[in-house]
Design a protein around this nucleic acid. Sequence first.
DNA 1: TCTGGGGTCCTAGGACCC
DNA 2: TCTGGGGTCCTAGGACCC
Length: 422
Amino acid sequence: MRSITLIDVNSFYASCERVFNPRLEGIPVVVLSNNDGIPIAMNALAKALGITMSTPWFKLKGFAKQYGIVALSSNYPLYADMSNRVMSILSQYSPDQEIYSIDECFLDLTGFNRNLVDYAQDMRSRIKQWTGLPVCVGVGASKTLAKLANHIAKKRPEYNGVCNLNDFEPERLNKILSEIHISSVWSIGRRLVPRLNALGIKTVLDLKNSDPEYMRQQFSVVMEKTIRELNGTACIELEEVAPRKKQILSSRSFGQPVYDLQSLSESVTLYISRACEKLRKQKSYAITITVYIRTSPFSIEEQYSKTRTVSLPAPSDDTRHFASVGLWILKSIYKSGFNYQKAGIMLSNIVPAEGQQTDLFGFKQSISKQDNLMIVLDEINTKMGKQCIRIASQGYKQPWAMKQELKSKSFTTKWDELIETN
DNA sequence: TCTGGGGTCCTAGGACCC
DNA sequence: TCTGGGGTCCTAGGACCC
C-alpha cells in the first residue's frame, strides 16, 4: 500500500502575517484578494465569527470594525518566500515531493520503515520552529485519501494535526468516511454536490461504495478516478516535475475605473510580459494569443465584454512578438465609452521549445539573438527586481494598477522593509 | 448557498471549409 | 436550392482548484 502524504499550512496567508506581526495573535485576521476584493484567507478566530470567503469586502467592512477584525491586503512576495522555506524543509523528509500549491505539498513515504505519525509530528515541530508556521499532515493510500486525511487532521483536534488513514481498521475507516460530507472530497465542487445528492450520495462512504464504471458514464473519468482513489487505488501519480502548462493566463482587475485605450494597452502589455516569462521558464513556445476586456458584471451601466484570438505564423516565446499582436487585438476589440473593470490575456497552443521550425518567411529568424535578449531580460529582472527592465508600452505610472490599501511590508524580500528587531 | 480574485482545463455550439 | 458528412477554428462559459 502506498503512503502518500499531504502537508498543508493552516490558514497560510493569515499565518504568515502573524509570524511577522505577533500582535495579531488572538485577533481575528482576514487577508484580502487583489484589489481588496474578497477575503481569501482568515485565521480561526475570523472563521468563528462567520466570515465567509467570496463575500465582497466592502459589505463586511462595518461588521469587521464592530468586531475588531484586522484586514490585510495580500502580500504575495512575502507568502512566496515563506512557502519556499517550508517546501525546502519538507524536501528533506522524502526524495519524492510534489509542490502542489503555494501552501501544500505531497510527499511519497511509501516503504518508509517507521511510524509515520511520529515522522509527521517531527515535520510539524520542525516547520513550526524554523518558520513559525503551523501545518497539518494527512497520510493515505492515494492522493485523494491523503487530502481527506489532512482534512480530518485539521478539523478534529484529537488528532493533534496528524491523521494516517492507513493505520485505520476497515470498520473505523468506513465509520469516519460516513461522517464526512462529499463536498470535502478533492475534485467534488459546488456543482457536483446536488447531482450526487440526487443519486443518494451524500457522504464520502456513499461515494466510495458507488460503482466507478456507472459513475464514469454519468459524470466523467475524473469521477471514476476519485472513486477508485477513495478505495485505496492510487490513480493520480505524484508529479515531481511540474508538467508543462497547456495554457498560460494573466489577468487582473483594475484598482480604479479605466476608460481609455492607453491604460488598457499598458495593462495588456504587462500581462503579456508576465505570461511570456512563465512561458520561457517552462521552456515552451506558444502559437496563439487571446486578449479580452470587460466591464464589471456587477455594474448597472451598460456592459461590454469581448474576446479575440489570433495565432502567430510560428511558435514564439518573445514578449515583443506577442505584445505587438496583443496590442493589435486590443485595438480591434476596444470600444470607447465603457468603464472597463478587467483585462486579460491567454497564451495557448503551447509546444516544447526543443526542435521548433521557423515558418516559410523565417518569422523566428536569427533565433540566437532574439532568444539571448529575452534570457538577459529574465536574468536582470530576477536579480534586480520584477519589471526592472520592461517593454515601454507597459507605462510607468500605471494608474490602473491594483488597489492594496492594507498591505503589510515585504519583510523578507525587500532591503528597505526588512523586519526590525529592536 | 449567489457573486466582486486568479488560474487551468475542458467542451458546447456557431461559423466556415472541403 | 436543399441536404448530408466530416473537420477545424473560435468564442463563451462551465467546472474545478487555491
